[in-house]
Design a protein around this nucleic acid. Structure first.
Lengths: 242, 242
DNA sequence: TAGTGGTCTAGACCACTCG
DNA sequence: GAGTGGTCTAGACCACTAG
């Protein structure tokens, strides 16, 4: 049984659109295998190379993942979690409000001198040391975001002591420094992940991420935390109220 | 003169990495043409198909844009414009504050019944008609965003009269209806563009966009405008203050 | 008209998975 | 061993751009 194709569109585009429609309508189901390249060749009566072009597009757009020797499987469609960004919400609060299993992991940390951007944002001189943390956050066991967080050493002296058993940055700041930072501004941007971030987030390099650069202040005023979060676009929505 | 390749990487990947390095290091310059497919075939001594695989990856990652009959050109690296989102900023205000040449174009409009989502957001019954506008916005002559804007007919009766010479939605609402909507909330999400949006924005479909779904109210309270903007991620940053 | 990218065919060999 | 996706070759015709 072969399949007729439209005339005014390139064949490979036609086929990829057809496959996308089938995924959307549930004919090809989540986490299940779609027909093999050879089967599709027969169905559409085209060369294998055309099918591969169509499947490449589906892969790039995040619909399927190919496994050598096994076949192409439909990606599980994420319903993005809605995160509320306001002056005093943090990751844990949000996830607990949503009743979602969450977890943070400290990937790495260092103490060093601030970069120009960090100096500008945290209003530091070039001699004031900072702690720089790389935090990976999970929901339901899946990596959601990587965040680089920078804090002046003055505000969190000897932070390394508390990093040994890292669970939540917010908790450390509250328990050991009596700090309760307040968000003063955030800058949103959509982009593609760096290769490094794509690896830790376990996503292909074509999946968009939303980058949120935030500045957190002491309630009295001075800046204590500057962070850049890179979050999977397909797993996350961010709500801001005015 | 042919080019030697590494052994442990697929040939097309090797070539695309080589080309990316050349762009990054400025050997291939912004807005200039890279060697043609045929030239690359000779240089690397591979089949044209392999070169095309490599160039497809470069296109997908946003490094180059192919033009039929002309060649592949290195994309200009955008320094994203910073847009300020607050309860009462609109596109024109922002661009004028930045001193940027801007323009809006009405792509299409229709009058019809609200979808379920529109009913929920604008608090309408299924019989209350809405105007639905598709607006394309430019800065410095380049397409920046497409926005779908929905307004209840009640609020802007006979809107079609004023759409003939469309310049700015904000201006129409102010001049003819004495409306000055205020943003009540926005939802941010990073994603890939739909095929239609990619076409009007003149970007490949793998360039991430930031989607901002906003609800605008009458200062007294009721919702008068529900919009979904799809904005080029590489041209736009959005700042929110708390 | 020559050169460029876009589409498509036909066929080959490889690496990997699974029964 | 049969089937799957990954890589690569060789060659064809088309649509578009530019001199």
């Amino acid at each position: 049984m072969t399949m007729k194709l439209n005339e005014d569109m390139p064949c490979h585009l036609e086929i990829s659109e057809y496959l996308i429609r089938n995924i959307q309508s549930g004919i090809f189901r989540e986490n299940e295998k779609i027909p093999s390249e050879n089967e599709l060749c027969l169905k559409f009566n085209v060369n294998r190379h055309v099918i591969r072009q169509a499947l490449t597009r589906l892969t790039n757009l995040g619909w399927i993942t190919p496994f050598q020797g096994k076949g192409c499987y439909v990606n599980s469609l994420q319903k993005p979690i809605q995160y509320v960004l306001s002056s005093n919400t943090r990751f844990s609060d949000n996830m607990e409000n949503l009743g979602v299993v969450h977890q943070s992991k400290l990937l790495s940390w260092e103490k060093g001198l601030p970069s120009r951007v960090e100096m500008k944002n945290l209003l530091l001189s070039e001699k004031q040391a900072v702690y720089r943390l790389e935090i990976l956050r999970f929901i339901e066991g899946q990596p959601l975001s990587v965040t680089t967080t920078v804090m002046p050493e003055e505000e969190v002296p000897q932070l390394e002591i508390y990093l040994q058993e890292f669970k939540s940055l917010y908790q450390i700041m509250l328990d050991h420094y009596q700090l309760r930072p307040v968000r003063s501004r955030s800058i949103f941007q959509a982009s593609l992940p760096l290769l490094r971030d794509a690896k830790v987030l376990e996503i292909p390099e074509n999946i968009p991420i939303i980058q949120i650069e935030s500045l957190m202040n002491h309630p009295t005023g001075n800046s204590i935390e500057y962070s850049i979060a890179r979050i999977r676009g397909d797993m996350h929505k961010c709500l801001v109220e005015f």
